[in-house]
Design a protein around this nucleic acid. Structure first.
Length: 259
DNA sequence: TTGCATGTTCCGGA
DNA sequence: GTCCGGAACATGCA
């Protein structure tokens, strides 16, 4: 599930329920999810503190306390859930923050996600690795600069977190489809007009998706039909094409998105 | 039973 | 160094 809009939804949930409350206890249900610490380590780091800020960069959620930072990445199936204190454990609850008034739970079926601690911003950067600007902050000029000189295909470039942070598979396909750009077009050879269209649709898709906390599988969206077998383009009715590009299943309309 | 899944990382090869 | 494909990670669903 988690791409930029999903993580933005988790961030809002974390902020609404988690900020300004004392951490009473950190319960590690499955220590596989603790990537650079231990149950004792995360307990020592966070117990008695309050979260003061919940930020997002790309697909990372960054929770600050004034002291240690808690970093979360959600992989393919991670999410944040807020529950009452006595709510029964979900089978995929992996790490539980016991706060005043309830629990913030890191839930993750497939366990590709994880929780990290960082002492400071320098360590945060080492954990997340180099990331490009958040996709929300990328306008047409910035996008043109980022793509210039790239030799590979457009879609893998857009999904490269070191270039632009936050673009996932569905988001990419949706934006490319709306902007009517083929996923295999060479990233570095787009016209300024095409770059402007990409940037505009990126913002439009993110605006609508961030409100919902997900990329809506709505009528009129590629995301609404991409899982259907034999799906047709919501715009022109042409049968959609499906192939692996940059290691990911890619869906596009061969008529609207030529070449 | 097989194939596939919205993410990342590592490896080998061109 | 750049770019690509494939495999791996853990789990569930069609």
């Amino acid at each position: 599930m988690p791409e930029l809009p999903d993580v933005e939804g988790f961030r809002r949930r974390f902020a609404r329920h988690g900020l300004g409350k004392r951490v009473e206890r950190v319960e590690t249900v499955d220590r596989d999810l603790l990537r650079n610490t231990s149950p004792q380590g995360i307990g020592r780091a966070l117990r008695g503190r309050e979260f003061t800020e919940a930020d997002r960069h790309g697909k990372w959620l960054i929770a600050r306390t004034g002291g240690p930072l808690m970093l979360m990445h959600f992989g393919m199936t991670g999410l944040i859930h807020w529950t009452a204190r006595d709510e029964p454990r979900h089978p995929h609850d992996r790490v539980v923050l016991h706060l005043e008034g309830g629990e913030l739970r890191f839930r993750d079926q497939r366990k590709f996600g994880g929780v990290w601690l960082a002492r400071d911003e320098a360590e945060r950067e080492r954990v997340t690795g180099p990331m490009g600007p958040d996709a929300l902050d990328v306008d047409a000029d910035a996008l043109g600069d980022l793509l210039a000189g790239r030799r590979g295909a457009l879609k893998p470039a857009l999904m490269d977190q070191r270039l632009i942070a936050g673009m996932g598979n569905l988001l990419c396909d949706e934006v490319l489809w709306r902007a009517r750009v083929g996923p295999r077009r060479p990233a570095g050879r787009l016209s300024p007009k095409t770059v402007r269209a990409l940037a505009a649709e990126l913002h439009e898709v993110l605006r609508a998706s961030n409100r919902r906390g997900r990329i809506p599988p709505e009528e009129g969206w590629l995301t609404g039909v991409r899982d259907d077998r034999g799906a047709r383009c919501p715009r022109c009715g042409t049968k959609l094409r499906r192939a692996t590009i940059g290691g990911r299943t890619t869906v596009w309309c061969p008529r609207c998105q030529p070449r």
